[in-house]
Protein backbone atom coordinates (compact mmCIF):
# COMPACT_ATOMS: atom_id res chain seq x y z
CA UNK A 1 0.00 0.00 0.00
CA UNK A 2 1.19 3.50 -0.86
CA UNK A 3 2.50 5.24 2.24
CA UNK A 4 2.65 8.80 0.94
CA UNK A 5 0.01 11.18 -0.39
CA UNK A 6 -1.97 8.27 -1.80
CA UNK A 7 -2.35 6.68 1.63
CA UNK A 8 -3.28 9.98 3.23
CA UNK A 9 -6.04 10.55 0.70
CA UNK A 10 -7.15 6.89 0.92
CA UNK A 11 -7.60 7.45 4.66
CA UNK A 12 -9.53 10.60 3.89
CA UNK A 13 -11.75 8.63 1.53
CA UNK A 14 -12.27 6.04 4.26
CA UNK A 15 -13.77 8.75 6.44
CA UNK A 16 -10.77 9.10 8.75
CA UNK A 17 -11.17 12.60 10.13
CA UNK A 18 -7.65 12.48 11.55
CA UNK A 19 -6.41 12.48 7.97
CA UNK A 20 -8.00 15.85 7.20
CA UNK A 21 -6.28 17.24 10.29
CA UNK A 22 -2.95 15.84 9.11
CA UNK A 23 -3.46 17.28 5.65
CA UNK A 24 -4.30 20.63 7.20
CA UNK A 25 -1.12 20.57 9.28
CA UNK A 26 0.97 19.57 6.28
CA UNK A 27 -0.48 21.82 3.59
CA UNK A 28 -2.49 24.67 5.13
CA UNK A 29 0.51 27.04 5.49
CA UNK A 30 1.37 26.47 1.83
CA UNK A 31 -2.23 26.94 0.68
CA UNK A 32 -2.82 29.93 2.92
CA UNK A 33 0.39 31.60 1.73
CA UNK A 34 -0.46 30.94 -1.89
CA UNK A 35 -4.00 32.24 -1.51
CA UNK A 36 -2.86 35.31 0.39
CA UNK A 37 -0.42 36.18 -2.33
CA UNK A 38 -3.07 35.84 -5.01
CA UNK A 39 -5.92 37.56 -3.18
CA UNK A 40 -3.97 39.96 -0.99
CA UNK A 41 -6.65 39.32 1.58
CA UNK A 42 -6.20 37.18 4.70
CA UNK A 43 -9.91 36.47 5.11
CA UNK A 44 -10.32 35.44 1.50
CA UNK A 45 -7.25 33.22 1.85
CA UNK A 46 -8.80 31.47 4.85
CA UNK A 47 -11.93 30.81 2.81
CA UNK A 48 -9.82 29.37 0.00
CA UNK A 49 -8.06 26.97 2.36
CA UNK A 50 -11.40 25.87 3.80
CA UNK A 51 -12.97 25.36 0.38
CA UNK A 52 -10.01 23.43 -1.00
CA UNK A 53 -9.67 21.07 1.95
CA UNK A 54 -13.42 20.56 2.37
CA UNK A 55 -13.70 19.67 -1.30
CA UNK A 56 -10.83 17.21 -0.95
CA UNK A 57 -12.68 15.61 1.97
CA UNK A 58 -15.98 15.36 0.07
CA UNK A 59 -14.44 14.34 -3.27
CA UNK A 60 -11.19 12.52 -2.50
CA UNK A 61 -11.54 10.53 -5.73
CA UNK A 62 -10.61 13.65 -7.71
CA UNK A 63 -6.99 13.32 -6.56
CA UNK A 64 -5.07 10.77 -8.56
CA UNK A 65 -1.64 10.14 -7.02
CA UNK A 66 -0.40 8.70 -10.30
CA UNK A 67 -0.76 12.12 -11.92
CA UNK A 68 1.24 14.19 -9.46
CA UNK A 69 1.76 15.23 -5.88
CA UNK A 70 -0.97 16.23 -3.48
CA UNK A 71 0.81 19.56 -3.06
CA UNK A 72 0.51 20.35 -6.76
CA UNK A 73 -3.10 19.13 -6.85
CA UNK A 74 -4.08 21.29 -3.89
CA UNK A 75 -2.01 24.17 -5.25
CA UNK A 76 -3.94 24.15 -8.52
CA UNK A 77 -7.26 24.09 -6.66
CA UNK A 78 -6.20 26.88 -4.33
CA UNK A 79 -4.93 29.00 -7.19
CA UNK A 80 -8.20 28.62 -9.11
CA UNK A 81 -10.31 29.45 -6.11
CA UNK A 82 -8.11 32.38 -5.17
CA UNK A 83 -8.41 33.76 -8.69
CA UNK A 84 -12.17 33.29 -8.50
CA UNK A 85 -12.18 35.19 -5.21
CA UNK A 86 -10.22 38.02 -6.80
CA UNK A 87 -12.64 38.12 -9.71
CA UNK A 88 -15.61 38.29 -7.40
CA UNK A 89 -13.96 41.07 -5.50
CA UNK A 90 -13.14 42.90 -8.69
CA UNK A 91 -16.69 42.64 -9.88
CA UNK A 92 -17.92 44.01 -6.58
CA UNK A 93 -15.43 46.76 -6.48
CA UNK A 94 -15.97 50.09 -8.08
CA UNK A 95 -12.30 50.83 -8.18
CA UNK A 96 -11.57 50.86 -11.85
CA UNK A 97 -7.87 51.16 -11.51
CA UNK A 98 -7.67 48.06 -9.42
CA UNK A 99 -9.97 46.28 -11.84
CA UNK A 100 -7.74 47.16 -14.76
CA UNK A 101 -4.63 46.09 -12.94
CA UNK A 102 -5.93 42.78 -11.76
CA UNK A 103 -8.36 41.78 -14.44
CA UNK A 104 -7.21 42.98 -17.84
CA UNK A 105 -8.79 39.98 -19.49
CA UNK A 106 -12.19 40.26 -17.80
CA UNK A 107 -14.53 37.67 -19.17
CA UNK A 108 -11.71 35.45 -20.40
CA UNK A 109 -10.83 32.27 -18.57
CA UNK A 110 -7.92 32.64 -16.19
CA UNK A 111 -4.99 30.46 -17.11
CA UNK A 112 -4.35 27.86 -14.43
CA UNK A 113 -1.32 26.01 -15.65
CA UNK A 114 2.17 27.21 -16.29
CA UNK A 115 2.10 25.71 -19.75
CA UNK A 116 -0.98 27.62 -20.85
CA UNK A 117 0.38 31.09 -20.32
CA UNK A 118 3.68 30.84 -22.08
CA UNK A 119 5.79 30.61 -18.97
CA UNK A 120 7.33 27.38 -20.07
CA UNK A 121 10.17 29.13 -21.84
CA UNK A 122 10.72 31.54 -18.98
CA UNK A 123 10.96 28.71 -16.47
CA UNK A 124 13.23 26.68 -18.71
CA UNK A 125 15.48 29.70 -19.26
CA UNK A 126 15.64 30.21 -15.52
CA UNK A 127 16.60 26.58 -14.98
CA UNK A 128 19.25 26.88 -17.66
CA UNK A 129 20.76 29.84 -15.81
CA UNK A 130 21.47 27.63 -12.80
CA UNK A 131 24.97 26.20 -12.32
CA UNK A 132 25.16 22.76 -13.91
CA UNK A 133 25.09 20.84 -10.61
CA UNK A 134 22.04 22.67 -9.35
CA UNK A 135 20.34 22.42 -12.73
CA UNK A 136 20.79 18.66 -12.70
CA UNK A 137 19.36 18.46 -9.18
CA UNK A 138 16.25 20.40 -10.24
CA UNK A 139 15.79 18.27 -13.34
CA UNK A 140 16.03 15.07 -11.33
CA UNK A 141 13.70 16.32 -8.60
CA UNK A 142 10.99 17.90 -10.71
CA UNK A 143 11.27 16.37 -14.16
CA UNK A 144 12.15 12.83 -13.20
CA UNK A 145 10.41 12.71 -9.85
CA UNK A 146 13.39 11.62 -7.76
CA UNK A 147 13.25 11.68 -3.99
CA UNK A 148 16.11 13.43 -2.20
CA UNK A 149 17.62 10.06 -1.36
CA UNK A 150 17.49 9.00 -5.02
CA UNK A 151 18.88 12.37 -6.00
CA UNK A 152 21.88 11.84 -3.73
CA UNK A 153 22.38 8.35 -5.10
CA UNK A 154 22.25 9.42 -8.74
CA UNK A 155 24.57 12.38 -8.18
CA UNK A 156 26.90 10.41 -5.93
CA UNK A 157 26.73 12.94 -3.11
CA UNK A 158 25.52 12.79 0.50
CA UNK A 159 21.80 13.29 1.04
CA UNK A 160 22.39 16.47 3.00
CA UNK A 161 24.38 17.93 0.13
CA UNK A 162 21.64 17.02 -2.31
CA UNK A 163 19.11 18.70 -0.06
CA UNK A 164 21.10 21.93 0.24
CA UNK A 165 21.86 21.94 -3.49
CA UNK A 166 18.18 21.69 -4.27
CA UNK A 167 17.36 24.36 -1.71
CA UNK A 168 19.88 26.75 -3.25
CA UNK A 169 18.44 26.13 -6.70
CA UNK A 170 14.92 26.68 -5.45
CA UNK A 171 15.92 29.95 -3.82
CA UNK A 172 17.42 31.24 -7.06
CA UNK A 173 14.46 30.12 -9.12
CA UNK A 174 12.09 31.69 -6.64
CA UNK A 175 13.93 34.97 -6.93
CA UNK A 176 14.12 34.92 -10.73
CA UNK A 177 10.61 33.66 -11.30
CA UNK A 178 8.79 35.60 -8.61
CA UNK A 179 7.69 38.43 -10.93
CA UNK A 180 6.37 35.97 -13.48
CA UNK A 181 4.62 33.79 -10.91
CA UNK A 182 3.04 36.91 -9.50
CA UNK A 183 1.81 37.79 -12.98
CA UNK A 184 0.17 34.40 -13.17
CA UNK A 185 -1.87 35.30 -10.14
Amino acid sequence: MDTGDGLLVARLAAGDEEAIAEIFDRYAPFLYGLARRVTGDANAAEDVVQEVLTTLWTHPERFDPSRGSLRAFLGVQAHRRAVDAVRREVRRSAHESRQQALDPTAGEPFPDAVESIGLVDIVRQAINRLPAAQRRAVELAYFEGCTQRELASVLGIPEGTAKSRLRLAQAKLSEWLAPHLLEMA
Binding site: G33, L34, E115, Y142, G145, Q170
Partner: peptide
Protein backbone atom coordinates in the same frame (compact mmCIF):
# COMPACT_ATOMS: atom_id res chain seq x y z
CA UNK B 1 9.32 8.26 -8.31
CA UNK B 2 8.20 10.56 -5.54
CA UNK B 3 5.93 12.60 -7.80
CA UNK B 4 5.46 11.49 -11.37
CA UNK B 5 6.89 13.90 -13.92
CA UNK B 6 3.56 14.19 -15.73
CA UNK B 7 3.35 17.93 -15.08
CA UNK B 8 6.84 18.77 -13.85
CA UNK B 9 6.49 22.50 -14.26
CA UNK B 10 3.37 22.51 -12.15
CA UNK B 11 5.20 20.45 -9.53
CA UNK B 12 8.07 22.93 -9.62
CA UNK B 13 5.77 25.90 -9.49
CA UNK B 14 4.07 24.73 -6.33
CA UNK B 15 7.29 23.52 -4.76
CA UNK B 16 8.58 27.06 -5.21
CA UNK B 17 5.35 28.46 -3.80
CA UNK B 18 6.24 26.75 -0.51
CA UNK B 19 8.52 29.73 -0.05
CA UNK B 20 5.40 31.81 0.53
CA UNK B 21 4.02 29.44 3.16
CA UNK B 22 2.42 31.38 5.95
Amino acid sequence: SQSPPGRPLEELRYALAEADAH
